[in-house]
């Protein structure tokens, strides 16, 4: 049985690079199945040699998790394949993808992305051009860290892989994003109100949206606010947009 050190920097880099394409052949019956095998191919070629094709077939099945966390599952499976635990590697893949998918959707799509967008919007209020750059930097700093460290974390946590899902780092990021969003909302609202030239109108529209969101869905709120705004436009009310260009 080989030790932890056998996952070299090159192996990890190859898995990382390939993990970027885990959704590349996403399809309804097998979802990320081909993408998951694509991550593992160089590693399986290295550790399996004469039983390489059989190992490939073993991991060309159904797979679906959050794309940023697929590296963690690949790390666990890579270690198990290396140690000859073939049946366990299939079980690990199947048992990890669900919890990681749920965690990833909540962390990356529901928290990190809105938080990064809100931070980018705050930046764009002062430097409109820097907004895009800010979004890419804020989001991808966490994204790349998760993809890169996930492979090694999975490889090292082969004995109890499920325990490596909820880490202190992920909890910290989640809690940070939860805090950033209301602060950024307040900040953007205040700047928008001041720059619009009609602060009371902006606050009234925000309040109407806030109260409506508790009772109606997003499209109804958007439609209602749009109708009011168009009516105001028809009556000749003019505001300034918050972005200075």
């Amino acid at each position: 049985m080989r030790g932890v050190m056998s996952l070299s920097f090159q192996d990890r880099a190859a898995m990382f690079w390939r993990s970027l394409a885990v959704q590349g052949a996403w399809n309804y019956p097998r979802m990320q199945g081909l993408g998951f095998l694509f991550i593992l191919v160089p590693w399986l070629r290295k550790v399996k040699k004469e039983r390489f094709e059989k190992a490939c077939l073993r991991h060309l099945g159904y797979f679906n998790t959050h794309p940023f966390l697929a590296g963690y599952v690949a790390g666990v499976v890579a270690r198990m394949e290396e140690e000859g635990k073939e049946k366990e590697s299939i079980r690990a893949r199947e048992s990890l993808m669900g919890p990681l998918g749920a965690l990833g959707d909540g962390l990356f799509w529901a928290r990190l992305r809105p938080a990064a967008i809100f931070m980018a919007l705050v930046v764009s209020l002062f430097w409109p051009w820097a907004g895009a750059l800010a979004l890419l930097v804020f989001f991808n700093a966490v994204h790349f860290k998760e993809r890169w460290s996930g492979i090694k974390a999975g490889y090292n946590r082969v004995e109890e892989p499920i325990g490596g899902i909820s880490t202190r780092w992920r909890k910290m990021i989640s809690s940070l994003c939860e805090r950033v969003i209301p602060i950024a909302c307040g900040f953007i609202l205040a700047v928008t109100a001041l720059r619009s030239g009609k602060p009371l109108l902006v606050l009234a529209l925000f309040l109407a949206g806030f109260l409506l969101h508790g009772r109606r869905g997003g499209p109804v709120v958007l439609g209602s606010l749009l109708a009011v705004a168009l009516l105001l436009g028809f009556l000749g009310v003019e505001v300034k947009l918050p972005w200075s260009m």
Partner: peptide
């Protein structure tokens, strides 16, 4: 012009 502010305010109010 006022309508151009609506996406901003809808997004802000939804997240708030």
């Amino acid at each position: 012009l006022v309508a151009a502010l609506v996406p901003l305010l809808t997004g802000l109010s939804a997240f708030s």
